Amino acid sequence: MRAQSWIVLAAFTGLTMAGGMYITQEAGKSDAPKRASALEAKQTQAVSAPGETSRQAPDQVLELAVKYLEIYGESIHQPATQARLYNERRGLIEADTRHGAALFRDAVETAFPDTGAQILTLMANLDRYHEWLDDNELRLQALQPLQRDTELWQQREALFGALASQIWGEEASFLEEKSQRFQQAVSNLEESGELQLTELAHQLHTRAEEIYGSDMTRQFAGSGALGHALFSLDSVQSHLHQLPPDQRQQTITDLRRQFGYPEAALERMAKQDQLREEKWQNGNAYMAKRQTLSQRLAGEELESALNHLREEHFGIAAPTIAREEEEGFYRFERPRRYGLN
């Protein structure tokens, strides 16, 4: 996935599940009658068998066990399916605060004897997760989506470990699908090759709204995701490289303004662009002198001259530049991407 794609994905994720787990009940119905009948037969045998020590499950427990088996039995081994039982449990507790939790426990252990303990452990962790959500609701709502997303996933991973990605896998798949649609829209704009920069920006903004909605698109603009996507296009960079410096910077600022950046942010980013330009000019001058020295000198004499040249151009960063070059990396041989680096 290209850079603009994962930024968009991260920005969108935080809004989808901040309020809790929105769980559907779709899986596990294909063999439901057979499984339910087998469970009822098993319970009847347990009651009538001579010398049997297990007590008969109450009718309500058996009724719930059959229901859970019909709805969830097909894929109950999957953490995402087990997590969907959480809404069933909350419903029972809301209906009967004294006995709802015990009723759910007995029903789960009856329906799923092999995975009952695992399910109940997951329910306890989901309780802790939702308590954390309730305690932090106002603070989370005040955060930007990227910050909220980070906190949500940190808490999920702290409580559930590797299971977090499985429990919320449908969310990730949903977001990934949108991200892929946006990436395809960006690729289509790149391939068009005939649009003016302002029209490219307009089309990119429009595609984002179609895929994510206008509210989320405004968040993308604020996080820089749309600007990153636009300036990552080769056609945009090709156009910017052909402009004189003053006109180039004005064009970059106008494109950012088109995405809705406030004037204070535009001024701050323009100053950052100027610093980047100065670094590149300094770096390009260094590379030209370096090439001249490499043609005239060799061995220790060359290395000594290069050390002085690095100190002249980069000051305290000279040792870092030297280490990079020892590893074969020359930062000023990278492509210049206006508006990005």
Rank of each mutant, 00 (worst) to 15 (best):
W153L: 05
T97Y: 02
S179K: 05
E301I: 09
S235I: 12
N284Y: 12
F259Q: 03
A27D: 02
K279T: 01
E326C: 07
T150V: 08
A49V: 05
Y286D: 04
T53E: 11
Q242V: 01
I93L: 11
S75N: 08
G91R: 12
S37T: 05
L340N: 01
L122M: 09
S179L: 06
A264V: 06
F329D: 00
E263A: 14
D59I: 02
G227A: 11
G213A: 14
R2I: 07
R296A: 15
D31K: 14
L152V: 02
Q291G: 13
Q56I: 06
D106H: 11
L133V: 11
N87K: 10
M1N: 05
A18H: 06
L340I: 08
F332L: 03
A124W: 03
R296G: 12
G73A: 08
A298K: 15
L62K: 10
Q60D: 04
E209W: 05
A221D: 06
Q196C: 07
L175S: 09
E199D: 14
Q144G: 13
H130I: 02
G222M: 00
T44W: 03
G14K: 00
Q219P: 01
I321L: 12
Q291P: 05
W6T: 09
E176N: 13
A102P: 00
E74C: 06
Q56M: 12
N282H: 04
R334C: 01
Y330V: 11
L255G: 10
I316E: 15
L133Q: 09
F104C: 13
R331C: 04
S187G: 12
S5W: 00
L133A: 07
D149R: 07
A172V: 07
L92F: 07
A298F: 08
V8W: 00
A288V: 08
A107T: 02
N307D: 15
E210K: 14
A101Q: 12
I316H: 15
Q45P: 00
S30C: 07
G339C: 12
P58T: 10
A270Y: 00
V236P: 03
F329A: 04
R98Y: 01
D114C: 07
Q60W: 00
L243Q: 11
A288H: 08
L233V: 04
M287A: 14
A265V: 10
S214L: 13
E324S: 06
